[in-house]
Design a protein around this nucleic acid. Structure first.
Lengths: 163, 163
DNA sequence: CCACCGTGTTTGCAATTGCAAGCACCGCGA
DNA sequence: TCGCGGTGCTTGCAATTGCAAACACGGTGG
């Protein structure tokens, strides 16, 4: 199962909510669902329907599709094997944004390739979870600078941005 | 709400099925749902969950997103956001890199939307979700703050690294 | 004629969603 | 010491999903 567990959708929602710095009740009201239910969803005790998922996405002001993908509901779609192509095809990005995204992506690819060469052709199927293996190199920091969210939503357990 | 107004999704499924020239039972088996339930769905008597919808889409060999749109679950003018899908499907990225890329992409989208609203308020595609929803709660300002400062200088594009 | 196989539909019922009400805990001010 | 408002969590319960079993109707052929 390459698709994420159902529980991960809850974690993802919670991460997004905490990142937005809003309380569970606030999001519940914004999304139009009850607070206890949202609590259960976030802890993976309930599997929300698409309708609820959609409302939560609205409440979080994020794409519904992101949540659907997280929930494993949109994975069968033919994946554009090319991230670059997808970025270029996205008409909702400005030219500069597109360029930055492609830039970052290529940098990531380069870094990954370097890693790969280091580890030889030792077949490593997945990186699994190496959360803090190594921070992002400086090059990417430059690209991220205007947004300056190094941790993103990846790690909630540790606040890397002190002071 | 004893009468779900999801008739269109059922009709659409039935059309697609008949166009594919397969029986209800065949599609039910291909989709992994029971025949009677599929029958009820096609006649609009039941509102299928996203999971069922996804399986039906698979059985029909059509995009799940099309069904979601038909079901009104992606009514939010979700653009060709294949970028997310592509990023998630790209096995050459580490989990962390994927997260960062998606994060940046979403931030770009948010920023673009804000720009759009600023430039043209008339052509706004009606993003109001609920009447009791506040126009733009302050909470989200806090959420966007680390990424972009709308009030300040929104220009994010800095020459990344390449010349 | 009646059994057989196909179509789609109706009927109960277990399992689940989603919610209202309430619980436990914490920080703050009187 | 209380009360007040905030956080998230637990508990029953109505409403709904989704399915197994059985139904009605039509064609085929022994």
């Amino acid at each position: 199962m390459a698709l994420p567990k159902v529980g991960s959708i809850g974690e993802y929602i919670r991460e997004q909510r905490q990142q937005a710095k809003i309380s569970l009740r606030q999001l519940a009201e914004a999304a139009g669902v009850s607070n206890p239910y949202l609590s259960q969803i976030e802890r993976g005790l309930r599997k929300p329907s698409a309708e609820i998922l959609n409302q939560i996405a609205k409440g979080l002001r994020i794409s519904s599709q992101v949540l659907y993908v997280q929930a494993g509901l949109i994975e069968d779609r033919e994946p554009p094997s090319d991230v670059i192509t997808a970025i270029r095809a996205d008409a909702l990005l400005s030219e500069r944004q597109r360029q930055v995204l492609i830039d970052i992506y290529e940098s990531f690819r380069k870094e990954k390739r370097a890693e790969d060469e280091q580890t030889s052709q030792n077949a490593r199927p997945r990186h699994d979870s190496d959360p803090d293996d190594e921070p992002l190199p400086e090059e990417y920091r430059a690209a991220l600078e205007p947004y300056a969210a190094p941790s993103g939503n990846g790690d909630v357990t540790q606040e890397t941005k002190e002071g």
